[in-house]
């Protein structure tokens, strides 16, 4: 075991860690912002409203994230029309390609999580809201969405962890994220075990923080479900 190479490259790991945190955080924020309207549209009763969201969710859940990244990074760059378009300054950067594919991917999964949670709303609650004279919009805002978010929380926690782990794919399209840093260290010093176990350790730490954060939110949001203390 030779951890001298790791210690000598700690700054590279920390830079990589920062890129990973940035990518995942931005992707999650954008993904969640897209997911809510996506879930609302997908649970609409009319086919012409729910068809596109369903197709989007199906495509992004139905293909590996790796394929999506390759399609966006290498695939789109193949077409001259794309290379000459106004989008190229964005699409030519590996960072933005990764962010776009991560955000769309997590939007699809999160959208489906929220849609499922909304579908589970007890019919009685909706009927009660209607009986109180709430408009459909108000019913969504006050009854369906708040309880759907609560139900979705554990599944969303999983999705956040999956996104963190999926972000290692950024290292494949030249981005020096945490995994990319590990690959560089490995390739310079030929110490695969030490390089990758160090990256694994950082991922474990981040997962720990995420799990802890979700426990914290659950304690607050689900406080009403706990038995009363005597």
């Amino acid at each position: 075991m030779d951890f001298a190479a790791i210690i000598g490259n700690l700054d590279l790991y920390l830079q990589g860690l920062w890129v990973t945190v940035q990518l995942v955080a931005l992707a999650l924020v954008i993904g969640l912002a897209l997911a809510v309207p996506l879930a609302l549209a997908a649970s609409a009763r009319r086919v012409w409203v729910n068809f596109l969201p369903h197709a989007f969710i199906y495509c992004f859940r139905g293909t590996p994230l790796l394929v999506q990244i390759y399609l966006i990074y290498y695939g789109l760059g193949q077409f001259a029309a794309v290379r000459e378009s106004f989008l190229w300054p964005v699409l030519s950067e590996a960072y933005w390609c990764a962010l776009i594919s991560f955000a769309l991917n997590t939007a699809a999964y999160t959208g489906e999580i929220i849609r499922g949670a909304m579908a589970q709303t007890p019919a009685g609650e909706i009927e009660a809201a209607r009986a109180c004279g709430m408009s459909p919009a108000m019913t969504y805002r006050r009854v369906i969405l708040p309880s759907a978010f609560r139900r979705a929380l554990p599944a969303y926690g999983n999705e956040v962890i999956f996104m963190l782990h999926g972000s290692a794919l950024a290292g494949i399209i030249t981005i020096v994220d945490l995994f990319g840093a590990a690959r560089i260290v490995n390739s310079r010093h030929f110490v695969p075990f030490e390089s990758y176990i160090t990256a694994g350790f950082f991922y474990l730490c981040m997962t720990f923080l995420i799990v802890w954060a979700f426990k914290f939110i659950e304690r607050h949001w689900h406080a009403h479900l706990k038995p009363l203390r005597g």
Binding site: G77, R83, E93, V176
Partner: peptide
């Protein structure tokens, strides 16, 4: 410095203008 896993991937990105 933009690093690739293989020379072929670097050529792909050279052609696409990255």
């Amino acid at each position: 410095v933009v690093r690739y896993g293989s020379q072929d991937e670097a050529y792909l990105d050279a052609v696409s203008g990255r």
